[in-house]
Design a binder for these strands. Structure first.
Lengths: 169, 169
DNA sequence: CGTGCGTTTGAGCTAATTCAATAGGAGTGG
DNA sequence: CCACTCCTATTGAATTAGCTCAAACGCACG
C-alpha cells in the first residue's frame, strides 16, 4: 500500500489517497504531478520513463483508453472524498473509510470482515481531515458499541450493515 | 458558470466544482457519472449522445488524448480541493477560493482584480465545506481589513498579494 | 529491564456551527 | 411613488464538534 499526499508549506499534510496493488500512479502524462508517494507496506512497483511511456501510449490508443478510464475512476473517488471532507462528521468519515477500504480490498482479495490497516493513525487522520486523537476516540467508541473489534494492524467489522448506515449515504 | 455537486440522502450538499466556459462535463466515458450540474449563469452547452461520442473518440486518438489531459487536470484540481477541505481554515479557504477564481477567469478573459461571484453564498459555502454564515463573516472581515471590497455580484481584490499570503500555500 | 514510539485517554479550549434576529434589495401591486 | 412581500445576506449570541495540550499506556526492540 502506498500513501499519496500533499503538504502545505507549514507542514500540514493531506493524504489524497491510498494506492493498492494494480493502481497506476502519475496518471497525468505531461504536467509535473504535484503529489508525493510513500510506501506504507512493502510494495513492488513498475516504473516507466516518462518519454518512453508517453511515446508508447501515443502508439497504443487502447492503452490510452484504459488510462483515461482509470483517471476517470480516480476523479470519481476524489469527488466522493470531497463530499466526505466537506460535509461528513468524524464518525461518518471513519465509517465511510472502513467500509470503503473493505470494499476496495474485497475486489482484490476475497471479501472479508477483517480490514487490515497497515497505515498509522496519523495517516488515517490526514486522509480524513481529522486529528489522530479524534480518529482514535471514534474507533474506540465504535469498538465500545460493538460495531468493530480492534485487532493488530486492523479492525474486524462486527456489524458492517450498522457501520454502513453510519456513513450517512 | 455551472455548479457541479453531489447530495447526501439527508440533503447535505457538496459542490465539487464550478465549470467555466470551455470546460467539458462528464469526462468519464462509460460509467454513470454521479455528479449533478446546474447553471448558475446563462450558459450555452454542446451536448453529445454518449454512444456517438464514444464511437467518435474511438476513431480519434488525439481527441482521447485531449480528454485525458482534461481529466488529469480535473483530478489535480480535485486533489487541491481535498487539501483545502481537509486541512485549511475558513479564512484560508475563502482566500484560496477567491485567488483561484481570479486566476481561472484571468485565463479566460483578461486578468482583473474584480472577481465576479455569480453563485450564491450558499453555493460558496457548499463548495468550501463551510456554512453560509462563516462565508459571510469571513468576507466581511476581509473587507474590514481592506483586503477586498464587496461589489454587486462579486468582490474587488484590493490587495491580492496579501490575500494570496492568507491561503497558506 | 529500560527506552522509544505509536496509541489511547483525559481535560479544557476554540473555530466554526446553530439558532435567531435584522437588514438589504428586487419585484409587485395599489 | 410608496407599501409590502420575498429572498438572500449579514450580524449577533450561544452551543458544540473537534482540536490542542498533556499524561498514561502498551508493546517492540536492544
Amino acid at each position: 500500500m502506498v500513501r499519496l499526499y500533499k503538504l502545505l508549506p507549514d507542514g500540514r499534510r493531506q493524504i489524497v489517497g491510498f494506492a493498492l496493488a494494480g493502481d497506476f500512479l502519475g496518471l497525468a502524462l505531461m504536467e509535473r504531478y504535484g503529489v508525493s508517494a510513500e510506501a506504507v507496506t512493502e510494495v513492488s512497483a513498475c516504473r516507466f520513463a516518462r518519454d518512453a511511456f508517453t511515446a508508447y501510449v501515443e502508439a497504443k490508443p487502447h492503452l490510452l483508453r484504459r488510462l483515461h478510464e482509470f483517471a476517470s475512476h480516480e476523479l470519481s473517488l476524489a469527488q466522493d472524498q470531497m463530499v466526505l471532507l466537506g460535509r461528513r462528521s468524524a464518525e461518518e468519515r471513519i465509517a465511510a473509510f472502513l467500509i470503503g477500504m473493505r470494499d476496495r480490498l474485497a475486489r482484490l482479495r476475497q471479501p472479508s470482515v477483517t480490514v487490515p490497516l497497515p497505515m498509522s493513525r496519523q495517516d488515517i487522520a490526514d486522509y480524513l481531515g481529522l486529528t489522530i486523537e479524534t480518529v482514535s476516540r471514534t474507533i474506540t467508541k465504535m469498538a465500545r458499541n460493538r460495531l468493530l473489534l480492534v485487532v493488530p494492524d486492523g479492525v474486524r467489522l462486527l456489524d458492517p450493515a450498522r457501520l454502513a448506515a453510519l456513513t450517512g449515504g
